[in-house]
């Protein structure tokens, strides 16, 4: 049926509202952004953007030499790599462990996916409170291990511990995301295949490695791509928990662009950096999907 030409009325209903919405709210600003990136414009300068002078690639040039931009980019990539790896391994492990039936399984799953439903600002608030000097991480958990010293750990005042606190919040909230996808993927592997492997003498580990994992590979790729794209956006945790600090040591790309645009009012420069990031994401995603499906997936 999909090859049939749509009746006029359906064509209008399917296209018009969607396009009106996208053009009015997203596509016009998107084109505007491309234009802004070539300007030297700061609203604090007292004139509107259409009067601002074109300065060519100067903003892009500046971005590629801006160490604060480059290190925020590197930090974000490191953040994505760390959280996605840990979340994937943990989520896959949990999905595998919860595959078989046992009493209380439904409840266990309901608890595990709880963080997924919370607004990131709430998760940020939770971990902001958890990691306070007298918060439970220091006051209860670490104090029981290393004693009174624990109360002197200021999580958000040191670059490394501040970064770790962000990673913990992310893992807490998003491991269930990977878990859910992996759980439905593993549940969909036909039971017969597993049994066939069992009677052929394969151990559970061998079956997992040779049967289950290869069969759910497309869903692994989907889960990792979606999660990596989401993790790359990280803003809420940083904005609330560390404010990018101490100094700029936990500033991610989103936070830096936000600051340049909103706090320093350098709209043109923010637009240029945005375009660089956009391009980067599209290229990397494309390569990753190509690598997983067309080259390695045969």
């Amino acid at each position: 049926m999909t090859d049939r030409p749509a009746p006029r009325s359906i064509k209008i209903l399917a296209n018009l509202p969607l396009n009106a919405l996208l053009y009015a709210v997203l596509i016009i600003p998107f084109l505007l952004m491309i234009y802004l990136a070539f300007l030297k414009w700061n609203p604090a300068g007292g004139y509107e953007w259409w009067r601002a002078p074109l300065i060519g690639l100067a903003n892009f040039h500046k971005a590629l030499h801006d160490s604060r931009f480059l290190s925020s980019l590197g930090r974000t990539i490191a953040y994505v790599a760390i959280v996605v790896t840990i979340e994937f391994l943990l989520g896959l492990l949990l999905a595998y462990l919860l595959l078989e039936k046992f009493p209380g399984k439904k409840l266990a799953i309901a608890i595990i996916i709880y963080p997924l439903m919370l607004p990131p600002v709430v998760v940020a608030t939770i971990f902001y409170l958890m990691f306070q000097d007298y918060g439970p991480v220091n006051n209860i958990f670490l104090r029981s291990i290393i004693g009174e010293k624990a109360l002197g750990i200021h999580w958000f005042l040191r670059p490394d511990t501040a970064f770790i606190s962000l990673i913990i919040a992310d893992i807490w909230q998003w491991t269930p995301f990977i878990f859910l996808i992996m759980y439905s993927a593993l549940s969909a592997v036909p039971k017969r295949l597993i049994e066939a492997a069992q009677v052929l003498g394969a151990s559970n580990f061998y079956i997992f490695w040779r049967i289950r994992l290869p069969l759910i590979k497309p869903l692994i790729v989907i889960a990792i791509v979606l999660r990596a794209l989401e993790a790359f956006k990280v803003f809420d945790y940083v904005y609330i928990m560390t404010g990018g600090g101490p100094g700029t040591s936990t500033e991610t790309v989103s936070v830096y662009i936000y600051r340049v645009a909103i706090e320093y009012h350098d709209i043109s420069y923010a637009s240029a950096m945005s375009l660089i990031v956009l391009l980067l994401i599209i290229i990397v995603t494309r390569i990753f999907i190509w690598y997983s499906f067309e080259r390695g997936g045969r």
């Binding site: 009677v199 151990s203 290869p214």
Partner: peptide, 20 residues
């Protein structure tokens, strides 16, 4: 004894060939 240590083999009705 688990199936893998019994040294019997089962041919399934649906064959259950490993598709990948």
């Amino acid at each position: 004894v688990p199936p893998r240590e019994r040294n019997v083999c089962l041919v399934f009705q649906e064959y259950a060939v490993f598709p990948h």
